[in-house]
Structures are given as structure tokens and as C-alpha cells.
């Protein structure tokens, strides 16, 4: 059998694994829904939760499709489809693929025909490197979550603050990240971003405006402002609450188009 990166067998193998992932999600969804009925939880609220989660997921999922397209140029379609449906993300998989190829004196972005051996090497580096969570969760989650329950039994108020502090800590890190290129304003030497030459595939540095680092800050501002307006509007139209996060996300993303043209 002659190997190529889009061989039908690769799609069948990826399809089987992705079907299993889908099976796991459906299994846990059904299990949680059953339990919610046993506990007498408000089923209208549960339906709203499902609807909001589904709508909110669309835009990020489309951006994952773009990542699949990006990686498929070098690795074929089956492997990125598998890796981004399971575990991975664009940056993780691209770095893993790049390191695996680099070890064979090849360069990501400049590979035309991968051999089966090179393909196996890339897949193994991706699989072994990005696997920790899958086995570590079964090992530690019961103990960790047990500790959280003990904390709640001991001091309910502190336990609630602790939970909120964790969420805020995570959000704060991402808010900081939004400002990570602001220093370009006062650092002329840093006003370059990495890019790829569309014709040669070479890595190049593209000059950008001093205000480039303000683009994400403005986008975040738009999204936050939309959320504030929706928060106020929710007092009159309660149903808006179900769509507040997806709407602010889409509004922020849409605003990035004129903002980038203006500040980029």
C-alpha cells in the first residue's frame, strides 16, 4: 500500500477515534441529565444551559476549523482533524509537528510529500507529548475534588470565595495577555510580527504600526461594553441572558475587522 497523507485509511482511523470521543460526550451528557431529573433541578434552566453552550461554541469551533485547514497543508486532512477534535489546539500541535519534523531535518510549512515513517514520527510526538491531562485526571481528580468538598464542609463561605478566586485568577491572566503587545507603543524595535511568505513558505517578519498592540485591547473593550449594555437590557428582556456571552463574543470579533484596519 502506498502511503499519502490523505489516504482513506487515515480518515477511517481518525473517524473511529472521533466517534468514540463523541460517544464519551453523549454518555456524560445523558448521565448528567438523568441525575438533574433525579435531583428535581429545573429542566427549563437545563435546556437553556444546553442552548447557550451550543450557541457560544459555534464561533470558537469555526476558528478550530481554520486551524485544521492551516495544519492540513503540511500534514494532510485526517491528522489535524483527529488532533483538533481530540486534546489539541493549533499552537500545541503546530509546535509538536514542527519539533518532530525538525528532528528529521525537515521544516513545517515546507514539506510536500511526507513518508509513512515521518508521519508516524509526527503522530507519536504529538500523542506522547500532549497526553498528560488524559491520564492525570483519572489519577488525581477524585482526591483534588474531595479536598474541595472537605473545604466546603469546613468553611462554606471561604470555599465559595476560593472557587471565585480561581475563576478570577484565570480570567485575570487572560486580561493581562490582551495587553501583551502594548509595549510596542514605546519600543520601536519590537514593531514586527512573525508571518509566512505566501509564495516561498519562508518565515518572515512583517512591520506593524506602533498601535498594533492596542488592537486586542480595543476588541476586548468593545466586547466588554456590549456585555454591559446587554446586562442592562437583561433587566427588561430576561431572555437576552442566554445569549449575552455569544453576542459579546461575536460583536468583539466583528469589531476586530475595522479596528485592525485602523490600528494595525
Amino acid at each position: 500500500m502506498t502511503f499519502h497523507v490523505n489516504h482513506p485509511i487515515l480518515f477511517i482511523l481518525a473517524g473511529v477515534i472521533i466517534a468514540a470521543v463523541l460517544g464519551q460526550s453523549i454518555y456524560f451528557l445523558v448521565k448528567a441529565l438523568k441525575r438533574s431529573r433525579q435531583l428535581g433541578m429545573d429542566q427549563t434552566k437545563i435546556k437553556k444551559t444546553i442552548k447557550t453552550a451550543a450557541i457560544f461554541t459555534i464561533a470558537p469551533a469555526v476558528s478550530i476549523v481554520i486551524s485544521v485547514i492551516t495544519l492540513s497543508k503540511d500534514l494532510g486532512l485526517a491528522l489535524p482533524w483527529l488532533r483538533l477534535s481530540v486534546v489539541g489546539s493549533l499552537s500545541y500541535e503546530a509546535i509538536a509537528a514542527s519539533n518532530a519534523l525538525g528532528a528529521m531535518d525537515l521544516e513545517l510549512g515546507k514539506v510536500s510529500n511526507l513518508t509513512a515513517q515521518q508521519f508516524v514520527n509526527i503522530t507519536l510526538v504529538m500523542t506522547i507529548s500532549i497526553m498528560v491531562g488524559i491520564w492525570l485526571v483519572p489519577v488525581i481528580s477524585k482526591k483534588l475534588l474531595g479536598g474541595m468538598s472537605k473545604l466546603e464542609a469546613k468553611d462554606k463561605k471561604w470555599s465559595e470565595i476560593f472557587q471565585n478566586a480561581m475563576f478570577i485568577g484565570m480570567i485575570a491572566a487572560f486580561l493581562g495577555f490582551v495587553f501583551c503587545n502594548v509595549y510596542m507603543l514605546w519600543t520601536p524595535d519590537a514593531r514586527f510580527i512573525d508571518s509566512v511568505n505566501a509564495v516561498t513558505g519562508d518565515k518572515i517578519q512583517v512591520p506593524v504600526a506602533a498601535t498594533y498592540g492596542l488592537i486586542p485591547v480595543c476588541v476586548m473593550g468593545v466586547s466588554a461594553a456590549v456585555m454591559v449594555v446587554l446586562g442592562l437590557a437583561m433587566k427588561k428582556w430576561k431572555w437576552l441572558g442566554d445569549y449575552a456571552l455569544p453576542i459579546s463574543l461575536i460583536a468583539g470579533m466583528a469589531s476586530a475587522i475595522p479596528i485592525t484596519a485602523w490600528l494595525g
Binding site: A59, P60, V62, S63, I66, I161, N164, A165, F167, I168, G169, I171, A172, F174, L175, F177, V178, I215, P216, V217, V219, M220, G221, V222, S223, A224, V226, M227, V228, G231, A244, L245, S248, L249, I250, A251, G252, M253, A254, S255, A256, I257, I259, T260, A261, G264
Partner: peptide, 29 residues
Amino acid sequence: PAFAQMLPALFGGLGVAFVSKNWKIAIAP
């Protein structure tokens, strides 16, 4: 640009919703 700025668009909305309810804890971090 829309997809490149997904994370700021996401955390802007989420940040307002969550930070405003817990602003005392949020200031320092």
C-alpha cells in the same frame, strides 16, 4: 482579524460578567 482576536473578544465579555460580581477579589490579580 476577527478570528485572530477571538480570545480578547471572549474574555472581554466574560471578564465584565465575572469581575463585576467579585470586584474586590479581582483588583489585585
